[in-house]
Design a protein around this nucleic acid. Structure first.
Length: 745
RNA sequence: GGGCUUAUAGCUUAAUGGUAAAGCGCGUCGUUGACAUCGACGAGAGUGCAGGUUCGAUCCCUGCUAAGCCCACCA
């Protein structure tokens, strides 16, 4: 053995050794005759990284935890397996490829749908597997023979089947709703897919004249952050309790700039009603709010309650529509804003302007400002599914650890809204829905009705089918076409626990033992997997969900690639080695507090690798001089020191195992670290030198040294697999080929 | 606006109802066969601030301050 441990000489070699053994696949684990014929399964799903991703600290932490659990359970004789794969990452992947194409001045529309999708596939073949290779470098012992992708043929079929299942149950409807629209990605987004960012802006106080003077009022002042939306106003609302405005309720207000031609009323100076609605906060602004049903989620709700018309004045590209009127049509929303402010100023209709910070909704994939617009979308009814999901956790059939995260889960389910599952991008699972062109009819921009197609109407107007329909349209006799929308990526991710498991695997690996993930996707992913699992298999998809800490910068800020505050785990592996990197990550994982990243922990890991290496070198050198075989059982101690170290070993191993079972990984690692370094190396190993000189204690001492080393290695192996395996390979005994499957009690 | 969490050595974090421990860093000393990626010894905090409970609090409770996270339709 070399004088110092060199991860570069070891890691690839050892990983290949493991791969060749086949033991990442639990079906290939050796079955000893004495043990039960079929080992109990212990499965963990790897949260599938996006094909666009490259490894970051979050992945590294996640994969290290999973690997510790898998290796630990495997060594305890279970059929342990980590099921890996990647996610097609709808919007993210589409954006990545669009960006790539843009370098050559090509847009996805230049290519057309079919060729664009082809390009994404090519891109996926080229880059999609990189991240899994990076996880191998970290030592992840996943069963790569079972690697899945969310757009594999079988997976895609399961996704469509799930949609059809929901449809047949009457849980799917299509409706025109005000949705979160990303003008850059050109698609709708669910509420969970938008992020808020504070932005300095203004609050404009606008005067809307009353049709006729009432009490002392000639006009009413409304406060708004988006004056341009006034072109689509349908009412002015106040709180029903607001004493100031009691006389004004149900009176008419004249919209100072209203669309001219083509408005439904066919006249200028649109009159809009004053209404009373409980959603209005009397303390904000003037307590009077302009209501723009088509371009604000809250206003849309108010409009529904009061049967107000929806004027769609902003289109999917963020430009003003024809309905906005001449002079505005075709302008960007911000340009329209300036023009409106100028005109109002000239007409002395701006009471005042205040500075105002407010939260702007942004797309979680491209950061463009979200534009709420009315749009035809497909929805999944959530109340029944939410109830099921809630019950599963309340009844402890599936458990969220730490418990505090249950709140995130329950809160979301309590305020659940129907899930907008259709997206207008091209990369993803196209809805298994066919429609005839003659029915496609364009949306009327003039007056949007809050239409909803329920189950029966859907059946009449669309064909929902797994395969292409051959039916001809009864009206025009042409063929039905598949509608262009694709499903929300998270709709397919929700099926991950079962969607591509072979039938045999399904029996073995569903439900899985534990889901290990980040708190950021509790509702986006975990909750949806739980209700999907219950819906399709009547069983929770995993017994436990372990929410691990988030890795933050040393200052406690979010790591961000764009700010350059991210730490690349691959750099750490390159400098310190994979074991040291894993050590450094886990070392910092105490009490489930977020980690304020400290690289010196990785340095400590590197030093520890070397310490283990050299202690092993000493022990094995003793072994060269006198052939000592590894005792199967605890050797009999002869001295007080012997007795003490054996006791300490036992205590440390027990404590470490308990900690792993309870997800206290940092504590587990410190326990075994302290034992190995301070009790074994500092004390016993030094003491052994004199005991070896004495012929009376020579043999037992060497035996105990070997025994304690071997037991320490197996305890350490889940945390630091490479160095421990490498040392194990240097053992003289050929009895046990791989430490990876050595028995750990 | 609501909720959650945290505050301990220079830094990142442990621990305990009876005055605190580790890693990294720092200082002094030490290279005769496990390891200088090491060893020995040492300096360094009285546990954010203010109250309360208690014989006694860093640990329990309340308030404050600061930071972070999540949720929310305040225009």
């Amino acid at each position: 053995m070399e004088k110092a441990y060199d991860p570069k000489q070891t890691e690839e070699k050892i990983y290949n050794l493991w791969s060749k053994s086949g033991y990442f696949n639990p079906d290939k684990l050796p079955v000893s005759k004495s043990s039960k014929p079929k080992a109990q399964s212990y499965a963990i799903l790897l949260p599938p990284p996006n094909i666009t991703g490259s490894l970051h600290m979050g992945h590294a932490l996640n994969a290290t935890i999973i690997d510790i659990l898998i290796r630990f359970k495997r060594m305890r004789g279970l059929g342990a397996v980590c099921l890996p794969g990647t996610d097609h990452a709808g919007i993210a992947a589409q954006n990545a490829v669009e960006k790539e194409l843009k370098k050559n001045g090509v847009s996805r529309f230049d290519l057309g749908r079919e060729k664009f999708i082809q390009a994404v596939w090519e891109w996926k073949e080229k880059y999609g597997h990189i991240i899994l290779g990076q996880l191998k470098k970290l030592g992840l012992s996943a069963d790569w023979s079972r690697t899945r992708f969310t757009m594999d043929p079988k997976y895609s079929e399961e996704v469509k089947k799930a949609f059809i299942h929901y449809h047949e149950k009457g849980l799917i409807y299509r409706g025109e709703r005000v949705v979160n629209w990303c003008p850059r990605c050109q698609t709708s987004l669910s509420d969970l897919e938008i992020e808020y960012q504070e932005e300095k802006s203004h609050l404009w106080y606008l005067r809307y004249n009353l049709k006729s003077q009432i009490s002392n009022f000639k006009y009413i002042v409304v406060a708004t952050t988006r004056p341009e939306t006034m072109l689509g106003d349908a009412a002015v609302a106040v709180n029903p309790q607001d004493k100031r405005y009691q006389d004004l309720i149900d009176q008419k207000v004249i919209l100072p700039i209203s669309p001219y031609e083509g408005s439904p009323e066919g006249r200028q100076n649109r009159e809009i009603p004053m209404i009373a609605d409980k959603a209005i906060d009397p303390d904000f602004g003037t307590g009077a709010v302009k209501v723009t049903p088509a371009h604000d989620l809250l206003d849309a709700e108010i409009a529904q309650r009061h049967n107000l018309p929806f004027y769609k004045i902003i289109d999917e590209k963020g430009r003003m529509t024809k309905l906005a009127g001449p002079g505005f049509e075709g302008l960007k929303a911000l340009e329209a804003r300036e023009k409106i402010i100028e005109e109002l100023k000239n007409r002395n209709l701006i009471e005042k302007t205040e500075d105002y910070n407010h939260n702007v909704a942004r797309c979680y994939r491209c950061q463009a400002k979200i534009e709420p617009i009315p749009s035809q979308q497909w929805f999944l009814k959530m109340p029944a599914l939410a109830k099921m999901a809630e019950k599963a956790v309340r009844s402890r059939k599936t458990e969220i650890i730490p418990k505090k995260f249950e709140k995130t889960y329950f809160d979301w389910l309590k305020n659940i809204k129907d899930w907008c599952i259709s997206r207008q991008i091209w990369w993803g699972h196209q809805l298994p829905v066919w429609q005839c062109h003659c029915q496609t009819g364009s949306n009327s921009e003039f007056r949007i009705l809050n239409s909803e197609l329920g189950h029966q109407e859907l059946k009449n107007n669309f064909i929902v089918s797994l395969t292409k329909s051959v039916k001809k349209c009864p009206t025009c006799h042409s063929e039905y076409q598949q509608i262009p929308d694709v499903l929300d990526t998270w709709f397919s991710s929700a099926l991950w626990p079962f969607a591509e498991l072979a039938r045999n695997d399904l029996k073995k690996f569903y439900p899985s033992a534990v889901l290990v993930t980040d708190r950021g996707i509790i509702n986006l992913w975990v909750t949806r997997m739980i209700f999907s699992g219950l819906e399709f298999f009547s069983r929770e998809p995993f017994a436990k969900t372990f929410i691990h800490p988030t890795v933050l910068t040393k200052e406690g800020k979010r790591m961000s690639k764009s700010l350059g505050t991210g730490v690349n785990p691959l750099d750490l592996i390159e400098i310190f080695g994979a074991d040291a990197t894993r050590f450094g990550i886990i070392w910092q994982m105490m009490s489930n507090q977020d980690i304020h990243w400290d690289e010196t922990a990785v340095l400590a890991g590197k030093k520890f690798c070397n310490k283990i290496w050299n202690a092993a070198r000493f022990v094995l050198q003793q072994n060269e001089k006198t052939k000592i075989s590894l005792p199967a059982r605890e050797p009999k101690p002869k001295t007080a020191a012997d007795k003490k170290i054996l006791k300490q070993l036992k205590t440390a191993r027990k404590s470490t195992a308990d900690d792993i079972e309870n997800f206290r990984f940092g504590h587990a690692l410190r326990t075994i670290y302290d034992f190995f370094w301070h009790q074994f190396c500092d004390v016993y190993l030094e003491k052994s030198k004199s005991q070896i000189i004495n012929p009376k204690t020579r043999k037992t001492t060497k035996t105990i040294l070997f025994y304690v080393l071997s037991q320490s290695l197996s305890t350490l192996h889940p945390f630091m697999p490479f160095v421990t395996e490498e040392i194990h390979q240097n053992f003289p005994s050929k009895k046990q080929k791989l430490l990876m499957i050595a028995k750990l009690n």
